[in-house]
Simulated scan of single mutants.
Amino acid sequence: MNGITLTLRTLHRGERRLAHHLVTVAERHRTEHEVHHVATDLARWSREHMRRLAEACAEHGVKLGDPPEHSSDGVLATLREKASEAVVHRPEPGLLLLRDLRELHVAAAENSLHWEMLAQAAQASKDSGLLALASSCHPQTLRQMRWTNTMIKHLAPQILTSL
């Protein structure tokens, strides 16, 4: 296994985790409409990154593990939705939202670093396909980071001063 292979696998796993976490946050904070809708849209970007990374992995002979089973996602999604509705007017949901946004930001930042490493390795090895992939996907990851950062800046003063 070489460094590019390792980076492709790590990035695929990171995008999968980020997509899953974005969907979880969207469901958990369904009553926060902007969070719900934007997180859902951003999860689509990460799923598209996963698809494109899987294609790149196949072209480079990298075998990815099977995707995780999601047999109980429907039940869990319903529970998260009902919980978000039940606690909408308590201060704790705000703290939970800040924590979720922070975790999303850190996950997107980690992916951003891996996209940058992939781009640098692709450039050094003159792999135009991987460079095009990184150049296409990395800006969306940066956008995911900007959104979480903006939301934290906007919500933190309200939430933290109202406790």
Score class of each variant (00 low, 15 high):
50 M>L: 12
88 V>I: 13
77 A>C: 08
162 S>V: 05
48 E>G: 03
100 D>I: 00
112 S>N: 11
55 E>L: 13
82 K>L: 15
89 H>Q: 12
109 A>P: 02
26 A>V: 04
63 K>E: 14
3 G>R: 15
62 V>Y: 02
9 R>V: 14
7 T>R: 06
44 R>N: 13
51 R>I: 04
117 M>A: 12
88 V>D: 10
138 H>S: 04
132 A>F: 09
156 A>V: 01
65 G>P: 11
40 T>I: 00
158 Q>T: 09
52 R>I: 03
16 R>T: 13
160 L>D: 00
113 L>E: 08
1 M>L: 05
107 A>K: 08
133 L>H: 06
33 H>P: 01
128 S>D: 13
38 V>I: 15
139 P>N: 12
65 G>I: 03
18 L>E: 05
71 S>E: 09
84 S>A: 07
103 E>D: 09
57 C>N: 08
146 R>G: 11
92 E>L: 14
114 H>E: 13
64 L>R: 04
111 N>L: 08
77 A>R: 11
75 V>H: 11
116 E>Y: 06
121 A>D: 07
107 A>E: 10
56 A>R: 08
16 R>I: 02
128 S>A: 14
3 G>P: 04
104 L>K: 00
48 E>F: 04
82 K>H: 10
63 K>Y: 03
1 M>W: 03
10 T>E: 10
145 M>V: 09
57 C>I: 09
163 L>S: 11
73 D>M: 02
163 L>H: 13
20 H>M: 04
2 N>P: 01
113 L>R: 12
89 H>F: 10
109 A>H: 10
107 A>M: 14
63 K>T: 14
18 L>M: 09
140 Q>M: 15
69 E>H: 08
74 G>R: 10
118 L>H: 04
24 T>L: 10
20 H>I: 05
49 H>M: 05
3 G>Q: 15
102 R>F: 12
60 H>W: 04
35 V>E: 02
23 V>D: 13
123 Q>T: 15
145 M>S: 06
73 D>F: 01
46 S>H: 12
162 S>Y: 04
28 R>M: 10
163 L>P: 02
153 K>W: 06
103 E>Q: 06
114 H>P: 01
56 A>W: 02
83 A>L: 11
63 K>G: 02
98 L>E: 00
94 G>E: 00
111 N>R: 07
75 V>I: 14
19 A>V: 00
